[in-house]
Design a protein around this nucleic acid. Structure first.
Length: 217
DNA sequence: CACCAGGGTGGTT
DNA sequence: AACCACCATGGT
């Protein structure tokens, strides 16, 4: 079921290559910056941080708050995100770096991440999957809509239920990471671009149709 | 011009 | 537990 979904989306959209050959801490920073923004804008902020030489745990934690706000401005919510980035960098630093956090069991690590300001379920799971290589399915707005439709008769699956179901039938880290990226790509290319998913690989069941009333069970 | 993008948080009902 | 307003820039 889930494996088939991955296969279908993969065949249709190709490899997504999220965070290709990227530094681990850079992925953490990117995960925060991209919240409720386009990757295009998050990437700009990331580049400015890189140009400033601030893309390491110690350097980022040392950047003056106002300066940090200025650097990440393109990513939006820059005041909140600057404070959270700073806080997160200091947390990782206190913990002894990302490699020290590698030793933590997944459940505990997730818990630690969720305690950090600005890190909710989605961001925590992105970091778990792409930074720490833990088998994790990231439930985002696209996944929510998709599975809400695929499991048509059932209404209101919680994020935790979606997460559990996917992780129960797909345990491969790379597969899970790729699935999340593919679901986002799928949502982007079919949700807004077309009123009805005529050429959608998942047909009308994909849940990204804008004509909600014409597609209800 | 209105709407939205790879969320999270705090307050209100 | 389900809503709500807010955060803010850049693209369409």
């Amino acid at each position: 079921m889930i494996a088939a979904l991955l296969q279908t989306l993969s065949a249709h959209h190709g490899p997504q290559a999220w965070w290709p050959a990227s530094d681990r801490f850079e992925i953490v920073v990117g995960a925060l910056l991209v919240q409720r923004t386009t990757w295009h804008n998050a990437k700009r902020a990331l580049e400015q941080l890189r140009d400033r030489g601030a893309l390491s745990v110690a350097r980022l934690a040392a950047v003056a708050p106002r300066e940090l706000e200025r650097l990440i401005r393109p990513a939006g919510f820059f005041r909140a995100k600057a404070a959270r980035l700073r806080s997160l960098a200091r947390f990782i630093d206190r913990a002894g770096g990302l490699t020290a956090l590698d030793a933590l069991e997944t459940g505990l690590l997730r818990q630690r991440l969720l305690e950090q300001p600005g890190v909710g379920c989605e961001t925590a799971d992105v970091i778990l999957g792409y930074v720490f290589g833990r088998p994790t399915f990231v439930v985002d707005t696209y996944a929510r809509r998709l599975f809400g439709r695929l499991d048509a008769p059932r209404t209101g699956l919680s994020d935790a239920e979606i997460k559990q179901r996917v992780e129960a039938s797909l345990t491969d880290v790379d597969g899970l990471n790729e699935l999340h990226a593919l679901i986002v790509a799928h949502g982007k290319s079919y949700c807004r671009a077309r009123p009805i998913c005529e050429s959608c690989p998942l047909r009308r069941r994909c849940g990204f149709s804008r004509a909600r009333s014409s597609n209800r069970a």
